[in-house]
Computed example of a mutant assay.
Amino acid sequence: MSRLRPGLARVEFYAVWNEVSELLNQGHTYRSAYEFLSEKKKITMKYDSFRRHVKAQFAKKKFMEIDSQEKSVIPADNKPKRVVPATATVQAFDSKNAVPLSDLLTEE
C-alpha cells in the first residue's frame, strides 16, 4: 500500500465520519469499523491514522459537550462590568464671568 500525501488521511476520515460514528454506535470496535470501511474501499489510510482521528473526534465532541454545559450554567446577566474612567472635575457656575441671557439672545 502506498503512503498517502500529508493531510489526505484526515480528508478520507471526514468523508466517512458519519459512517464511522454509526458503526461505533452500533457496537463495532475501532478495528472492525476500520476493516469494514477498508474492505469497501472507502478508506486507504493505515489503522493507526484511523484510530488517531477517531479518538481526536471523540475528544473534540466531549470538549464541546463540556463547554456547552459550562455555558448553560453561567447566568445571562453575568456579563463583565464596564469600567468607566474617572471624568474630569466640573466647575461650578461662576456668576462673575457669566454672560447674561439677554446678551446671548440679542447678539450684542
Rank of each mutant, 00 (worst) to 15 (best):
M1W: 12
S2N: 14
P6Y: 05
G7L: 01
L8I: 03
A9T: 01
A9M: 01
A9K: 00
R10C: 02
V11K: 15
V11T: 07
E12T: 01
E12I: 00
E12R: 01
F13L: 01
Y14V: 04
V16D: 07
W17L: 14
W17M: 14
W17S: 15
N18V: 07
E19P: 03
E19W: 10
S21Q: 12
S21D: 12
S21F: 04
L23K: 14
L23D: 11
L24S: 05
L24A: 03
L24C: 02
Q26D: 10
Q26M: 12
Q26Y: 08
Q26N: 13
S32G: 14
A33H: 01
Y34W: 07
E35C: 11
F36R: 13
L37A: 02
S38G: 06
E39A: 07
K40N: 11
K40R: 11
K40P: 08
K41Q: 12
K42Q: 12
K42C: 10
T44F: 15
T44P: 02
M45I: 00
M45A: 01
K46L: 03
Y47G: 00
Y47R: 01
Y47N: 00
S49H: 02
F50R: 01
F50Q: 00
R52H: 02
R52G: 01
R52S: 04
H53F: 04
V54C: 09
K55T: 03
K55S: 08
F58N: 09
F58W: 09
K60M: 09
K61F: 10
K61V: 04
F63C: 13
M64C: 12
E65P: 10
E65I: 11
E65R: 09
I66C: 10
S68T: 13
Q69V: 09
Q69D: 13
Q69I: 09
K71G: 10
S72T: 11
S72P: 08
S72C: 10
V73D: 07
I74N: 02
I74L: 09
P75F: 03
A76D: 11
A76T: 13
D77S: 14
N78C: 07
P80H: 04
R82W: 12
R82C: 12
R82H: 14
R82G: 06
V83W: 12
V84W: 13
V84F: 15
P85V: 02
A86L: 12
T87N: 15
T87F: 13
A88L: 12
A88F: 10
V90L: 13
Q91W: 06
A92C: 04
F93E: 06
S95A: 14
K96Q: 09
K96F: 15
N97F: 15
A98N: 03
V99F: 08
V99W: 05
P100W: 01
P100R: 04
L101V: 05
S102V: 12
S102Y: 09
D103A: 08
D103W: 04
D103S: 13
L104I: 03
L104H: 02
L105Q: 03
L105W: 05
L105F: 06
T106Q: 05
T106V: 07
E107T: 10
E107P: 05
E108I: 05
E108F: 07
E108D: 15
E108R: 09
